[in-house]
């Protein structure tokens, strides 16, 4: 009886999900399809667009001459676009590696009990809560060579002690080791600018990742570590042979999540580096935004670039799934 009543009311589940579906169609599916359609047109915001599909008095008409692959072919001749792909790749590698490694390090340190550790865990979420644009401004300020706290810290805690040690060696006869520069222009050097951009991202993400690892570490049965110790394993062996393999599923999920976010890097590029020096930090999202909304207002070309990115991401995701996830 109940089943038959449910069958009669099959429309109820549909009615419940329809609002959500409509919102997804309007905010995600429609823009995706529209961008795909635009990518085959010469469409700049500053002039009225001419689209292939035309609806007029004579009904629906398709003007095939207005469809073009020019935007796609242009992308592969555009050195700026190719550069942005390369920058995005290196930024992703750096920021993912730094976030996961530092996050894991923090987790190992704070996973132990105690009141202070609980407080530390609670505070860890704060960097992630800072808006990315603000993060960029803050880091630019903090890296300033005159009044930047990071610049001061790096000089005082790293460069000066190293130089002091090098100076001792240099006092020996026939030894002349060049000292490290105390005036690194962090955002004026191609490598350091990209590295610091990755660090600003790591600053926000590593604590969040640490919290994920803390949860995962807490769920590992203590008897496993006990058994390893009884078998004679030292701390390093336990970490690399027991802890890390057991954390593998979390590491994979965290890596995938961070990779997706790193590929979308935009805000800090705008507020921290402006894409510079030269083109060293022009990520693909930043470049697409410049092409579409700031420089050429070329929506057709920006759409084509976005779809090339979609293809690249799809290939990466497929490789990732086949190489990593399937193996598990």
């Amino acid at each position: 009886m109940g089943y038959q009543r449910m069958r009669k009311k099959r429309w109820v589940p549909w009615a419940l999900v329809t609002p959500a579906l409509l919102i997804i169609v309007l905010t995600t599916i429609y823009p995706l399809l529209a961008a795909f359609y635009f990518s085959f047109h010469k469409y700049k915001l500053r002039s009225p667009p001419q689209f292939a599909i035309q609806i007029g008095d004579g009904g629906l008409r398709i003007d095939w001459s207005l469809l073009t692959l020019d935007n796609y072919t242009l992308a592969f001749r555009d050195s700026r676009f190719l550069n942005s792909l390369e920058v995005t790749f290196w930024f992703t590698v750096l920021s993912v590696a730094l976030s996961v490694i530092i996050g894991l390090g923090i987790a190992v340190v704070v996973q132990k009990g105690g009141r202070l550790h609980s407080l530390t865990k609670a505070l860890l979420i704060f960097p992630f809560a800072v808006s990315p644009a603000l993060k960029g401004y803050s880091w630019r300020f903090m890296l300033n060579e005159n009044y930047g706290i990071y610049d001061l810290l790096i000089d005082s805690l790293i460069i000066k002690p190293i130089n002091a040690v090098l100076a001792i060696f240099n006092a020996l006869p026939f030894v002349e080791i060049p000292l490290l520069s105390e005036s690194i222009v962090w955002l004026g050097d191609r490598f350091w600018a990209l590295f610091m951009l990755a660090m600003s991202e790591t600053w926000g993400w590593a604590p969040l990742i640490a919290l994920m690892f803390v949860g995962a570490l807490g769920s590992i049965d203590g008897q496993i570590f006990e058994a390893a110790r009884i078998d004679g394993a030292n701390r390093l062996q336990i970490f690399f042979r027991v802890t890390l393999p057991l954390l593998r599923p979390v590491i994979l999920i965290v890596t995938m999540l961070k990779t997706i976010f790193s590929l979308k890097m935009f805000d800090q590029v705008v507020t921290m580096t402006g894409g510079g020096p030269v083109r060293a930090t022009q990520t693909i999202n930043y470049y697409i935004h410049q092409v579409g909304f700031v420089r050429g207002l070329d929506i057709g070309y920006a759409s084509a670039q976005s779809y090339i990115l979609v293809v690249v991401l799809t290939i990466c995701a497929a490789l990732y799934v086949s190489l990593v996830l399937n193996r598990d």
């Binding site: 222009v185 004026g188 600018a193």
Partner: peptide, 9 residues
């Protein structure tokens, strides 16, 4: 102009 001016706005 200082070396840092390569990154100045």
């Amino acid at each position: 102009s200082p070396e840092a001016s390569v990154a100045w706005n």
